[in-house]
Amino acid sequence: MDTTKHQGGIHQIIINSKKTNKAKTKNRLDNMDLIIKTITRVMFPFIILFGAYTALHGHLTPGGGFPAGATIATAFTLLVLTFRESEVEGRFPEIKLIDIKSIASIALLAIILFEFALRDIIIQYQIPMTVWSGGDTLFANIFGSIIVATGIIIIIYSLIKEEWKQ
């Protein structure tokens, strides 16, 4: 099998404007552009930081579990789209991601089912209008963001992985 064939990845279509061009550009496009790689490396921690801020401050400022998880998943999507298979493979073991997602789901289920009892107990030990407040919505935000982030990462990574294997 030709090794240069699947090294190009998803970005080939951005420059391959025509089908007939594919044979010509196959050997040129071994790598994504250096600018895109560098900017992805620089932006990645900041997007993760914003997602964590949206999750942890969800009970004080606009945001919450779902936007936070989606933001974290966007960072990983950038990573998967820009880097090649050899640079990314092994970093996302999907079975482990499903394990994390299941554990977070069980935690969220426990929180929401025993909310009526937990709420009044936790609030007594919390300081209002700080990060350590919000009763169990704080924990629900954290676990909800983990569930959404891992779910979207699994979806996108399994779509991309099949693309790499061809």
């Binding site: 998803i10 989606a70 998943a73 999507t77």
Partner: peptide, 30 residues
């Protein structure tokens, strides 16, 4: 509605676009 705005940017502007690009890569561009 800033929370809806954050969700809209993260889901439709980023993830939906990348999923569409993957789908185009699997089929045909034109």
């Amino acid at each position: 509605a800033p929370d809806i705005a954050i969700t809209q940017v993260a889901i439709t502007a980023a993830l939906e676009t990348s999923i569409f690009i993957i789908a185009i890569h699997k089929t045909e561009r034109r």
